[in-house]
Amino acid sequence: MSARYLTRKLATLVVTLYVTVSFNFLLFHVLPGSPIQLLARSGHYDPAARAQLIKLFGLNHPLLAQYFIYLRNMVHGDLGFSYVYRKPVTTVLGGAIGNTLLLVGTATLVTILVGVWLGVMAASRAHSLTDASITVTSLALWSMPDFFTGMILIFICGVWTHVLPISGLVTPGLVTGTWGHIVDVGRHLILPALTLTFVNAAEFSLISRNTLVDVMVEDYMLTARAKGLQRRTIVWRHALRNAMLPIVTATALYVGMILGGAIQVETVFSWPGMGLLIYNSVVQRDYPVLEGCFLLFAIAVIATNFISDLLYQVLDPRVRRT
């Protein structure tokens, strides 16, 4: 990877982040009826908090000055003050971000493994019954809203059979050691993670299948067979390595999707992460928190895009030196 490429990508990253932050400002601070403007006048805050708010966002200054104050706050990591939790937004987010990472991380790991594996299964038996059933199942799963999948799982595993906890991060009132705590969280994690996996693994299996089917007919696949390599080696080393490129690109868009899914799933399972925070802040009109969550989600997606761009460079020698 050339230094020039890296510099260009970094510059794009910085510009995109800057635009995102500005977009956020526009959305929450400038547009008519935007919450910060309303808040300053509303009765949600006691006079002291309101004065603090006005000072923090410089609401008594002209718009341009407000914009610079906003940017300065961003640079200092100051995202405002939640009036529901009565804490700085950063503190509120800090408490939720780990839980979302745990949920989304687990789901992503399983999604990629299961999705790609299913895609390989379907593609290596292209146009067979296995292929057709995997594809149709994936399409059907893909068509399910995450929250609905979650509700079905709640019925099956929670309401009817009681095999797994359906709500929250831990069992209330359960006192155990560290190990017991991990097991408890793990059990609570299963259903929400599974829900996210269903929809997204479906998407992954469709993408992997289609790219693999395209790759399978390439000349070098025939070469690999002619070399007398084992079927497994051919599919995993030669086909998948080439099919990785579109899959990596898809992953970047996937992050946006899974975060959208996380909002629904955390709501359904009361998983105390950022998704639930978004839901609650919508219900309670806690705009500073909503703004902070959105900004963080946007940054996460932008960062993933950046990483996937770099990864693409590493994976595809053809673009590496250009």
Partner: peptide, 27 residues
């Protein structure tokens, strides 16, 4: 297939058309 795989390349090797794409581009 297993027997064939033992003979492929050891007994009979192939040079494909054009070679444009016969080599794996990412290896």
């Amino acid at each position: 297939e297993a027997q064939l795989n033992r003979l492929r390349w050891t007994a009979v090797a192939f040079v494909f058309q054009g070679a444009m794409n016969a080599l794996n581009p990412v290896q």
